[in-house]
Amino acid sequence: SEEELEEFAKEVLRRGITIIVNGIRITEVEIFVKVLREILEKR
């Protein structure tokens, strides 16, 4: 749901943790923004 997305976004921003994806360091915020864009483009 959109509320869950908002909560996830807030949690990500609070933690600001960097994770490893395919050997490249990407912040969770960047991943969230990318996923959010993909979701919005599909609408």
Rank of each mutant, 00 (worst) to 15 (best):
E3A: 13
G23F: 13
L40R: 03
K34N: 08
E7P: 01
E38V: 08
E41G: 09
E41P: 03
E2H: 12
A9G: 02
L13A: 02
V29A: 07
A9Y: 05
G16Q: 07
E28A: 12
L36R: 00
S1G: 08
E2L: 15
E7F: 08
L13G: 01
R43H: 14
L5C: 13
E30F: 08
I19W: 04
R43T: 12
L5I: 05
S1I: 12
E2V: 13
E30M: 11
G16L: 15
V29W: 15
E6M: 15
N22I: 08
R25Y: 10
L40T: 02
I39T: 05
E3G: 11
E30I: 10
R15L: 14
F32T: 00
T18H: 14
T18W: 12
V35C: 04
E2R: 11
E6W: 15
G23S: 04
F8R: 03
F8V: 02
G16P: 08
K34G: 04
E3V: 12
L36A: 00
V12C: 06
E11P: 01
T27R: 04
V21N: 02
R43W: 15
F32H: 01
I39C: 02
F32Q: 00
R25I: 14
L5M: 07
K34H: 05
F8W: 15
T27W: 08
L13D: 01
K10M: 09
L40M: 09
E4K: 14
I24T: 09
E7R: 13
G16F: 15
I17A: 10
E28Q: 11
V21P: 00
I31P: 06
R37L: 15
V29D: 02
T27I: 05
E28D: 14
V35I: 14
L40Q: 03
G16S: 08
E38Y: 13
L5F: 06
V35H: 05
I26W: 05
R37G: 01
E38P: 01
I20S: 05
K42D: 11
I26K: 01
V33H: 00
L13P: 01
L5W: 08
R15V: 06
F8K: 00
G23V: 08
E3Y: 14
I17S: 04
I39S: 03
T27G: 02
G23M: 06
L13F: 15
I31S: 10
F8M: 03
K42R: 12
T18S: 10
L36P: 01
I20L: 09
K10Y: 09
I19E: 00
I26N: 03
L36M: 06
K34W: 07
K42G: 13
E6A: 13
K10I: 09
T18R: 14
V21D: 00
K34Q: 12
E38A: 11
V12W: 10
V29P: 06
A9I: 15
I20R: 04
F32L: 15
T18G: 06
V21S: 02
F32A: 03
T18I: 15
I24G: 02
I24M: 07
R37H: 04
I26V: 08
R37P: 00
G23E: 03
A9N: 01
K10E: 07
E30W: 10
K10N: 06
N22E: 04
R15H: 08
R15Y: 06
E6G: 03
R15C: 09
I31F: 10
F32R: 01
K34M: 11
G23Q: 04
K34L: 07
K42E: 10
L13N: 03
E41S: 11
R14C: 03
L5N: 01
V29L: 14
F8E: 00
G23I: 13
I39M: 10
L36E: 01
R25V: 14
